[in-house]
């Protein structure tokens, strides 16, 4: 049994219906392949024994499944109301300037993808953004350069440094 199949089977055990395992299975496939390709969708359909169209409609309805490859660091800036009021536009502009792409694009070296997204549930620490799975909160325009520098260093070292939030909780 492949590693992916084993993980999907484990999560499928949580539900009385195999269809319910589609969403977790797509996350597992995305983790393995980086994005949800047609091949990945077919593989998930085969493992779960469900029609491919069920997989396809889920992959296309929910925004967290990347149908196109994203950069090593996927930067998602919240631009919804609370962040907008705290100058999220300035954060987006600085990021565009510093990494040299427009929102919605990936840098040529595959390092960064920049997206503007809807509310990430972190309005009290606006403006904020998410880089891969990590929240970066209470951002300032000047602080962006430092974060990008850290990310580039992290890519260079290949190491996954842990980041600590203001409350002492660990976020990697």
């Amino acid at each position: 049994m492949s590693d992916l199949k084993a993980k999907i089977e484990e999560t499928a055990g949580h539900f009385p219906s195999r269809r319910s395992a589609i969403m977790p299975a797509l996350f597992l496939a995305q983790e393995q392949y980086g994005s949800i390709t047609n091949d990945a969708m077919e593989e998930v359909a085969d493992i779960l024994g469900v029609p491919k169209v069920w997989i396809f409609e889920i992959a296309n309805f929910y925004t967290m499944y990347n149908k196109e490859p994203v950069g090593k660091f996927h930067i998602q800036v919240c631009t919804n109301l609370s962040c907008m009021l705290r100058e999220a536009d300035g954060i987006v502009a600085r990021l565009e300037e510093q990494i040299g792409v427009k929102t919605g694009e990936t840098t040529a070296d595959g390092m960064f993808t920049l997206s503007a997204v809807e509310c990430l549930g972190s309005c009290g620490t606006a403006p904020m953004m998410q880089v891969n799975k990590t929240y970066y909160e209470d951002l300032t325009v000047e602080g962006i350069d430092e974060i990008l520098k850290e990310l580039r260093e992290k890519a260079g070292n290949g190491g996954e440094r842990r980041r600590h939030d203001a409350n002492g909780g660990d976020r990697d």
Partner: peptide, 16 residues
């Protein structure tokens, strides 16, 4: 599924 813009209370309970 805390998603209503301006809301971040459930996260406080979930995380802490």
């Amino acid at each position: 599924d805390e998603g209503e813009p301006g809301t971040f209370k459930d996260r406080e309970i979930i995380e802490k």
